[in-house]
Design a protein around this nucleic acid. Sequence first.
DNA 1: TTAATTTGTGTCGAATTAACGCAAAGAAGC
DNA 2: GCTTCTTTGCGTTAATTCGACACAAATTAA
Lengths: 226, 226
Amino acid sequence: MKAFHSYQNPSLAIDLVVFGYQQRTLSVLLLNRNEMPFKDTWTLPGAFLQMDERFKDTCSRVLKTKLGMDNVYLEQLYSFDEPERDPRGRVIAIAHYALINPKNFAITAGSMANDVQWFDIHQMPKLGFDHQEIFTQALQRLRSKILYFPVGFELLDDLFTMPELHELYECILDTSIDRRNFRRKILDAQYIINTGKKREGLQNRHPDLYKFNKKLPKNAFQLNIS
Amino acid sequence: MKAFHSYQNPSLAIDLVVFGYQQRTLSVLLLNRNEMPFKDTWTLPGAFLQMDERFKDTCSRVLKTKLGMDNVYLEQLYSFDEPERDPRGRVIAIAHYALINPKNFAITAGSMANDVQWFDIHQMPKLGFDHQEIFTQALQRLRSKILYFPVGFELLDDLFTMPELHELYECILDTSIDRRNFRRKILDAQYIINTGKKREGLQNRHPDLYKFNKKLPKNAFQLNIS
DNA sequence: TTAATTTGTGTCGAATTAACGCAAAGAAGC
DNA sequence: GCTTCTTTGCGTTAATTCGACACAAATTAA
């Protein structure tokens, strides 16, 4: 077979859009490159695919070695093939996005080198390569997916309150959602389960603590949030 | 950069799920391989990505040279990375799906070699490689996409009747849809335009001929077909 | 105790949907 | 030409869902 020996294949890279959420802010993790090309420019984290790796292996390697994160929600996004997207040569990028929970967010936010940084998605710097486009697609995907699949929970702790979940959805969708209708729809969709516990805290009335419903029914999707 | 010189990259293949529609039947185009591996087994058409090609270039090349088709609707589907998916070595597949109109369908159906064949999606043979999985994902994508984007028209002639469109949707979604509610929703969504012409033919009442609305409004999506 | 804030639950009119009726247009048979 | 049958276009209505609120319970601070 020609493809295996007679010519060089394009390089295969994995690029990662890592989302985190805290304090009513949706953030992305960016790296400041310390080598050419795009030296001193912010980019998405990534790595070249090794011969024996699956995509998710490469993702985990990047998340673990560069960012110290474990057990992260991953989803393949899209593959980018523009021949000039990398000035070093032909590189195909298989983009993925990751949703990391507050535990990992806190670890990294505290211990990160100054060439790694969380950015509010509304205040991002110019990105190198075609990473602005990749990011935009990832955000779109997250926004549409959250409307028909309970994916937001990956950004919250195991236990969370209804107002916390409500704020997360408002933040991701960048819109205001009626608190009471949101509650009704999320409960109807059976995305979450009331644990009976309450969040004891600094606030006023103590809200119920919910957890994600891991065995959700085949019906009852499509939130249709107003 | 290590990735460019010091080791072999995985090969990159494009695999194509080619959908066609005629006579109330949704079909897929399959190739019977005449070499190892999977000799004499039906597979999806495909090719290796050349260094100077974009994904869609490779798709067009396959469609043109192997199947004699032009001007085909193409969409990237997903990338498949299972290391053992090809017994010859590491091959990453960037799967796409294609929707071809009846003109191309007729041409190919008439002039095809006996190693190329249309199969009703309900009566497909066992496929080689991981192509069964790729096909399944393509069908899922088509079924969900048709609910929020007017993509079915790629499978019909430029002019078509309401009953024809209705049958197409029933066939793709593999369900029965109320004729009158379907009409209302498709018209509300402004997917199509009544040309004023009628289909003169063998039937009873002559149905109106519609065409696809190429400048459809930003609002008015999401069909929500019952 | 009172006031202020937050959270849980319920209500109601408006909008949307699903199910179905019916008449107009054409073809076929007599 | 008339009737019958099939297909297509258009309309109606009851049931459901949705969006916009009201209100009470729980908690803290004054």
